[in-house]
Design a protein around this nucleic acid. Structure first.
Length: 565
RNA sequence: CGGGGUGUGGCCCAGUGGUAGGGCGCUACGUUCGGGACGUAGAGGUCGUGAGUUCGAAUCUCACCACCCCGACCA
């Protein structure tokens, strides 16, 4: 591709609205163009990268036994009502009507459609296992799109679905997919963490996320340097050091005027946060409940939602709290009746806690579980934090920010039962097919790759993801001999199968061209110039290298192959 | 939805009631040519939309819309 023919333009300065590196650099390099919030056009450079990533994914999916299909984006609403996912997706679902007024959906994912395919094409255990996948545009009306391609409303996604006869077979499919995913990220030069994850509302046991560590990421991953335990913070389980034992004291009221937070309470009484118990009110499917955790911890809403088997969970409003006769800021489970109480196991780790007295401006000291209060449910609902202890090996845990670039999970039989995807086993018994699903956001993967690989000058593309392999810069192209040499080299490179972007602009200063090369960030930069031509050499510089080398024209192709392999 | 902000040539922005501007980019010619050159001459604008106030509105008022950032959602 000649630069003069490339449609997109590079920008000299940073677009002010872009805060994350990948967003900023993709705009500056002329890769993407925003059409509406969370909706982008992919210009030629970006689209070449996307296609390369898609092909890597395709090869690995095929190698893992996947068969590629293409399912419709436009689907009848009926399909979504049938499985109850219309309400599960809620406002995230893009909806429309056809000309006859039939409600339709722009599909956010394809479990319904794929299960329908399998329902009518698989009848016997002999037909299993099966893995189907597609690479296609998904639509989700996200609450808040952000960070360029990291979170968008229309996006290119690879979604795969496995169908197995039994759990062992599902395990094998799941492992095969996990390995395929690791291969994909490795080929894209992306060191990802495979983290245990929450499997969400729809059943399922195992679930893993693939997270690329980057400071601007949306997710937090808890890792153990001791044993390698890795889990998303919303899933991670952490241990606490055993509190020193104390003999129980009597409950006693203390006046705490104006004290409403753990921090102010601890300061007021000159105690540590872990000597208190934090009470938080939630509305779970419109029922107000009380969640208690030790004062130094935070409630993990994902764990809480799972423990309550709730489909919808949010903080209770002030009105709801007051309506239930509760005292925000001075609440606790002590003496509390008529409301569901759930507590984190951390409240058993310690003694003589300070808790709310359920009276304004009053707390209680000497609260002990279960002597003074009970919980309807006592389980792990705390957010794991760095500094806490690994439950596997006792090592101190660490936290890493990152972007989720893949998610796999075991679905179980929710969809196959709802849609009737059944098979006959070898004893002639009818059973629901066991499913798994596996997703990668392709555009987000590109954004993550850039997030991970850039410097102050621009992108630093991993070779397999780069739109072109080589950026050929011609300096002083008004010199006919130089132009002829550069043109010839450009033709030669393509003949040799080396994908080359040729900056053939005659009217730009060297600085502009070299800076654009750094910005676009192709793996190798070649410079043809009067100086190099005189010595019969071409200058070669890897984007990651600080120094360039000069290579004779005869040696060039061999050297390039070496670098690009 | 709550909080904060922004809408003026392709891009970045200035412009507090009286002729719509600057920089970058773009076109033509000339001079330059190894890290974001220069000269000369040009092209390019429903000032987000609608109502209102006024002799007169980019500017004041009201309503609406869009976009960005922070929180809940996710590949």
């Amino acid at each position: 591709m000649k630069f003069t023919q490339l449609v997109s333009k590079t920008l000299r300065s940073d677009p002010p609205e872009a805060e994350t590196a990948s967003h900023r650099l993709m705009l500056r390099a002329g890769m993407i163009q925003q059409v509406a919030s969370g909706i982008y056009s992919y210009l030629p450079l970006a689209w070449r990268s996307i296609r390369k990533i898609e092909n890597i994914i395709r090869e690995e999916m095929d190698a893992a036994g996947g068969q590629e299909v293409m399912m419709p984006t436009l689907q009848p609403m009926e399909m979504w009502e049938h499985t109850g996912r219309r309400s599960a997706f809620g406002d995230n679902l893009f909806t429309l009507q056809d000309r006859r007024g039939r409600p339709m959906v722009l599909a956010p994912t394809h479990e319904e459609a794929v299960t329908s395919i399998v329902r009518s094409n698989v009848q016997s255990y002999r037909d299993l296992p099966v893995i189907l996948y597609q690479i296609q545009t998904k639509f989700r009306d996200e609450l808040r799109p952000r960070a360029g391609l990291v979170r968008v409303r229309e996006f290119d996604m690879k979604d795969a679905y496995s169908f197995d006869a039994d759990d062992d077979s599902l395990d094998r499919s799941y492992q095969a997919m996990a390995q395929a995913y690791r291969n994909i990220y490795r080929r894209c030069d992306l060191p990802v963490l495979m983290a245990e994850a929450d499997s969400g509302a729809i059943g399922g046991k195992d679930s893993h996320e693939f997270i690329l560590a980057t400071p601007t990421g949306e997710d937090t991953v808890i890792t153990c340097p001791g044993c390698g335990y890795t889990a998303n913070a919303e899933k991670a389980v952490a241990g606490l050091p055993e509190a020193k034992s104390e003999s129980p004291q009597a409950l006693q009221e203390v006046s705490t005027p104006g004290i409403k937070t753990i921090a102010s309470l601890a300061e007021f009484l000159n105690i540590s946060h872990e000597q208190t118990i934090k009470a938080v009110f939630y509305s779970a499917d419109d029922e107000v409940i009380l969640a208690s955790v030790r004062g130094d911890l935070e409630v993990n809403e994902v764990k809480l939602k799972n423990a309550l088997h709730a489909t919808q969970l949010r903080l209770a409003t002030d009105e709801e709290v007051a309506g239930a006769g509760l005292v925000a800021g001075s609440a606790s489970a002590v003496g509390l009746q008529g409301i569901k109480r759930i507590a984190d196991t951390s409240i058993t780790n310690g003694a003589n806690f300070v808790v709310g007295a359920n009276k304004p401006d009053t707390h209680l000291t000497g609260a002990n579980y279960p002597r003074d209060f009970e919980a309807d449910t006592l389980t792990d609902i705390a957010l794991a934090q760095p500094g806490q202890l690994c439950i596997q090996c006792g090592h101190v845990l660490e936290a890493t920010r990152g972007v989720e670039v893949g998610h796999i999970f075991k679905l179980g039989t929710f969809f196959s039962e709802a849609i009737g995807a059944l098979y006959l086993d070898d004893e002639g018994e009818q059973r629901p097919i066991i499913m798994g699903c596996y997703g990668i956001g392709v555009g987000r993967l590109l954004a993550a790759a850039i997030e991970q690989n850039h410097d102050e000058k621009g992108i630093n593309f991993p070779i397999p993801v780069a739109p072109y392999q080589v950026h050929l810069v011609g300096l002083n192209l008004s010199d006919e001999a130089v132009a002829a040499a550069a043109d010839k080299l450009y033709a030669q490179l393509w003949e040799q199968g080396i994908e080359t972007l040729y900056d053939d602009r005659t009217d730009q200063a060297a600085g502009v061209k070299l800076n654009d090369a750094d910005l676009i960030g192709l793996p190798v930069r070649l410079v043809v110039s009067p100086r190099n031509l005189k010595n019969d050499v071409v200058e070669v510089k890897g984007r990651k290298d600080s120094e360039s080398e000069t290579v004779s024209t005869e040696e060039l192709i061999r050297r390039l192959r070496q670098i690009l392999s």
